[in-house]
Write a protein that binds this DNA or RNA. Structure first.
Lengths: 298, 298
DNA sequence: ATAATAGTGTCTTTCAGACAGTATAGT
DNA sequence: ACTATACTGTCTGAAAGACACTATTAT
């Protein structure tokens, strides 16, 4: 036993010097989702909806002029969550929204500047409340429609498991810009070891590894939408059941059967006395979210 | 426009100086789970099982001599996951196991030394393979039985939502030591804002905010066990269905009906030709994990 | 024979999927 | 009357829950 190690905790902390160690930098990046209407010409038809993501145009190096997820460095005296909220306020003028931590990305070479570890958050915002409207705001904060599709799938079954390789194409589009990225997801499931690897293959106009983070968030959003009531964070105070259904459909990228859908979400909604009007067809009853009594971990 | 900002990305990166900014330190902490048998006296009775967690005794300040989750600082040139694996190897001699990121804890005052952000990982290890056996190894790595119970629950329903407050007592025990912690979980679900707060109330002999991290991991483990096939990472190569059932029961802290359980897990298992023997009662068929063809996101 | 576990059959209820059908504003 | 959407009833089959019952080994 070394005598010199016999110092008490108070003294130890006083002498503690962080600068002795090489430290990574830490950022937060937030995927802000909304589901917004596409304007239509036919006065009787309901507007279609699109899944949107908020991106900002980078004003500085690296990836200058590319688009990126809103986010930035975590300050030494703020929590991760507060950092995410602060960056959202500063960069996009969004506040008081649903925010949830997703995953922390710790690859060594994610960022060309230095070692940067990034915690990603997912935010959901009611489309009608969103103050950032495409085109009307400053040049560098925009909603992009977000579509992902599997363009290649490869399954190899060997001895004691399988390997599933998927190439996914991600399309981010608004009136002026279109960004396309490709990512590879490899899912190896052997007897003993199972693992998943995500890798950006190409990413034009989209900064860092944000394509991969975006796709991860979509997988998570889809999973949450099926098991929880997060969707209501994307709805305005009052909504029709058809609107609610199309939000589900846009996120899950499938069509649902109305009767079954209504049965399933019945417990989450509550009638109001109001109806839609002037729609060129039968008016729909407006509903609101019925606050739940229990808590879902996921 | 400032002329001096017109430098290209290459030059920008060359001149980039990390030390200009205050950076937090980053650690990883891993909750290593196993389900182990308790020895019994009655030769005919099957051994009961217990949920175990691996803790190490801290040799240095802060929290010297307290128990803590295995983990440590992330090095500048290793990924988060590699850091978790390395620390496990170094501290507990555990390798090649199922590892999954859980959550990143970013409160400002988690650590008395300095600002420390910690990514927590969950590891699952087959009880028979575990080289660290309580008592036989070095003094400072031990399996603790892990039990959590809600000792107080308080629900307030107000105007547009509810507030659910739970006090949870966590018990970590091995032959020599017993650690007891209390944490408070507040679940506020208002019309607009929903949020969850986790807070350590007291934690004797358990370092940092590890009580809260432990409980979070238990919630996650329980959720995963119900929807996925992670459990098989806790099983040895061959096992009886009764063993499998007790692993579920120990994790979920409930009794299950055998017939229903077997129906449910049927698709995950595969018969072998072997049976248990010398058990003092009817021998049981041994099964093994049947590798699945699809991939579950959660 | 007995203790203790292993393993199966089946009834009931609940829930998801599919589909057909009726209802109603605005022009 | 027609268009486009709003909303409902019911059949089917799968899965979850409950429970009773039979089978088999070591001592």
């Amino acid at each position: 036993m070394n005598e010199t190690t016999f110092i008490d905790e108070k003294q130890f902390l006083k002498e503690y010097d962080v600068t002795k160690y090489d430290r990574p930098s830490v950022t937060v990046d937030t995927i802000v989702y909304s589901v917004l209407d596409i304007e239509t010409d036919n006065y009787r038809k309901l507007p279609e909806k699109e899944l949107k993501v908020l991106l900002i145009k980078r004003k500085d190096h690296p990836y200058k002029n590319s688009w990126a997820l809103p986010g930035g460095f975590v300050r030494i005296n703020e929590s991760l969550e507060n950092a995410a909220y602060r960056e959202l306020r500063e960069e996009t003028n969004v506040d008081h929204i649903y925010l949830e931590q997703l995953y922390t990305w710790g690859d060594v070479s994610r960022d060309p500047r230095t070692r940067v570890i990034s915690s990603s958050y997912m935010a959901l915002i009611d489309g009608t409340k969103s103050t950032i409207k495409s085109g009307t705001d400053s040049d560098d904060v925009r909603w992009f429609s977000f579509k992902a599709k599997v363009i290649q799938e490869n399954k190899t079954i060997h001895q004691q498991g399988f390997k599933l390789e998927k190439i996914i194409e991600i399309c981010l589009k608004n009136r002026e810009v279109q960004l396309t990225s490709k990512i590879r997801i490899v899912n190896e499931m052997m007897k003993e070891q199972k693992g998943i690897t995500r890798e950006v293959l190409s990413s034009e106009g989209l900064a860092f590894d944000h394509a991969k983070i975006l796709y991860y968030s979509l997988e998570r959003l889809r999973a949450k939408v099926e098991f929880t009531d997060v969707v209501f964070n994307l709805m305005s105070k009052k909504f029709t059941l058809t609107e609610l259904q199309s939000v589900y459909e846009v996120i899950l990228d499938t069509k649902l059967l109305t009767a079954n859908f209504r049965r399933k979400i019945d417990k989450y909604v509550q009638e109001t006395d109001d109806y839609t009007s002037n729609a060129g067809h039968r008016p729909a009853k407006l509903y609101q979210y019925k606050v739940q009594n229990n808590y879902e971990f996921y």
